[in-house]
Design a protein around this nucleic acid. Sequence first.
DNA 1: CGCGAATCTTGACGAGTGTCAAGAGTTTTC
DNA 2: GAAAACTCTTGACACTCGTCAAGATTCGCG
Lengths: 213, 213
Amino acid sequence: MTQVAAPKASRRTPADKHDERRKALAESALRTLGELGYARASLREIANNSEFSHGVVHYYFNDKLELIVYCVRYYKETCVHRYDGVVAEATSPTDLAERFGDKLVETIVEEAPMHRLWYDLRSQSMFEETLREAVTQIDQSLEDMIARIVDRYATLAGAEPALAAPVAYGMFDGIFQQALLGHLNGREGALEDLRAQVVGLMPMLLTQPGAMR
Amino acid sequence: MTQVAAPKASRRTPADKHDERRKALAESALRTLGELGYARASLREIANNSEFSHGVVHYYFNDKLELIVYCVRYYKETCVHRYDGVVAEATSPTDLAERFGDKLVETIVEEAPMHRLWYDLRSQSMFEETLREAVTQIDQSLEDMIARIVDRYATLAGAEPALAAPVAYGMFDGIFQQALLGHLNGREGALEDLRAQVVGLMPMLLTQPGAMR
DNA sequence: CGCGAATCTTGACGAGTGTCAAGAGTTTTC
DNA sequence: GAAAACTCTTGACACTCGTCAAGATTCGCG
């Protein structure tokens, strides 16, 4: 990934072992963070649920905040490409909408703790200025992700997107958040509702022709 | 409010003085909570920014959590009727949409700390089960509020709402949250964008006729 | 092997937390 | 006006937190 000048024939020992350890620590920390949230997850608890001791955190990160930001960034990196397959494989507008809905439901089922962690962090960024830059960047990448989906949908339908990317992102993020809340509350039908809402909403993102089949 | 049997001629001394104090404490606490958020606002800090001492909290509330839930409930109570005037006074669909957008912008400008506190609490409820009941109730009342607006809008336009209340609420909540984030980030145009987005979105909430003038 | 640099553990420090009990102060009631 | 009930303050307790320093352990290279 990073440009390796390789001063000697050292394959992977100089400083990217450092990076590997950071990632390992992050993956471990993400479990605890997803379970407890930003405020309640102490460094000791994070370390206990990992193979490390609580002091090692300050060897790889300056700060608790730096660790957490690193973790969320690390997770969201894989997150923005979740729908790339959907965009690539969809054969029709309806097909795209359905695959998109399915994927949204799937990620709530499988990664609910990660998503609530993200919303936690984003809320904290409203109070903690230190977090804002990272949150803004992640939010932007998510908006781009949605924009790719909407664009592809419009192309498949032979139409133009009717809404700017920020609006589309805000909308989907809003109903996604509601579905996540409902799911965590154990509300029956929360996920089916999300799927249906997405499929029903997609046609409205296009100009004139409306739903095209 | 509560049924007053009034055992003697006591006007307002028995137990509603208790309630008044709770409200006074809540109003004071809301300032600190809006500034620091749920996790960082300690009871001592809350008490310092009020006329009380830190011990008095446990005289009126069992718990820090009970205080905070009471506070947010208390605030949101006044919040759900913010748009009643808009609904009552609007003379046309466009008029309603514009007034609605204006009000949304206005409340971000004037009560941003309260709104971020709400989002903070809602995020925490994803981790803390104790909070879920209150959050669910508040969310429902907000959804109803949006539903009243959409219904009135549809009536004025002589059409039927095209989206179920949960979707409409999720959408508006999503773009509102983005606008709040943008505003707190100091992003220029965040509020004007919100206003335009709302005005542009409203016609999509109706069936066939689309935007009616 | 042996030495130095890296990685990691352990234990402690100080600050801050929610909670509560004991009592002072105030108001109400008889 | 005394007694009882209510209201509030003060100070302490037990605990958890992030941080860091000092030392143990491991690793890589000459």
